[in-house]
């Protein structure tokens, strides 16, 4: 880690977050802490409130109750939902990154790959074309996107390439915290494996902290240090990844783990 960070202070502290959609429950009374350098996986079946929770954490949704505290680079704790909008948007494009399930939601499909990667740099004030392009090339290489495709639009890319491009676009400014919503969703297994390798490499190399939402336990096992298991909007079990997956305590977690096919 490049900065001197107090590893005892959580980077993100989630306190009793509840979000409902009218009579329908999104997630209820969720609390956990994310420490610097840690990757937390949120697993659960479809409709269990994983994505709602992630959107609350990333400031994209406002919870009905509870709060989310983020410790910024200066060490002060910011309430994600009560900081001023300029400050939150600033966080979103500098300190944070959000990798969408569908690359189309996170990319500008009418702008070239290079422009996509460069956007966060330019938003941060970069005004030297040569440097922006150099960094874009560097990141395309890191994310294993063919560098000769830098001037092509992402709608000419395959799903796996689009997802890797989305990751490059998000990580180019060196964020401290990455939110990922089903990063491998909709990709075939071999492409998934390469993407997971890539993510694992980047996470350890950059010392990223991340929250990964997935329904795929294999993804959770590979990427995350700790797991949060959700069902019907509530946390049913938390613990170290291996512990939760190898020795599940809750009945639902046991069901979840035993549902995975082992070829």
């Amino acid at each position: 880690m490049t900065e001197t960070e107090n590893l005892q202070t959580p980077l993100l502290s989630v306190q009793s977050v509840t979000k409902t959609y009218g009579p329908h429950l999104g997630c209820s009374d969720i609390s956990f802490d994310l420490y610097p350098g840690e990757v937390v996986g949120i697993v659960g079946e479809s409709g269990s409130g994983k994505t709602t929770l992630l959107n609350c954490l990333a400031g994209r949704l406002t919870p009905d109750a509870g709060k989310v505290l983020y410790t910024d680079r200066l060490g002060s704790a910011l309430n994600v939902h009560t900081v001023s909008e300029p400050q939150r948007r600033m966080l979103m494009r500098t300190d944070w990154a959000f990798v969408h399930q569908h690359a189309r939601d996170g990319l500008r499909m009418t702008v070239s790959a290079g422009g996509n990667v460069g956007e966060r740099l330019m938003a941060g004030g970069a005004r030297h074309y040569g440097n922006i392009r150099e960094q874009a090339l560097d990141w395309l290489e890191k994310t294993e996107v063919d560098v000769s495709r830098i001037d092509d639009r992402p709608d000419t890319f395959s799903g796996g390439m689009q997802q890797r491009l989305q990751i490059a676009r998000n990580l180019v400014t060196g964020p401290r915290l990455v939110f990922m919503d089903e990063p491998t969703g909709g990709l075939d297994v071999s492409v998934q494996a390469r993407l997971l390798d890539l993510l694992r490499g980047l996470v350890s190399e950059m010392g990223l902290s991340a929250i990964i939402v997935t329904h795929d336990l294999a993804v959770a096992r590979l990427l995350s240090h700790r797991l949060v298991v959700m069902r019907r909007g509530q946390i049913v079990e938390t613990g170290l990844t291996d512990q939760v997956l190898d020795d599940p305590q809750d009945a639902y977690t046991q069901l979840l783990v035993s549902s995975v096919l082992h070829p």
Partner: peptide, 8 residues
């Protein structure tokens, strides 16, 4: 930043 993306 987006305006510069266009020029880029």
């Amino acid at each position: 930043g987006l305006m510069h993306v266009k020029l880029y």
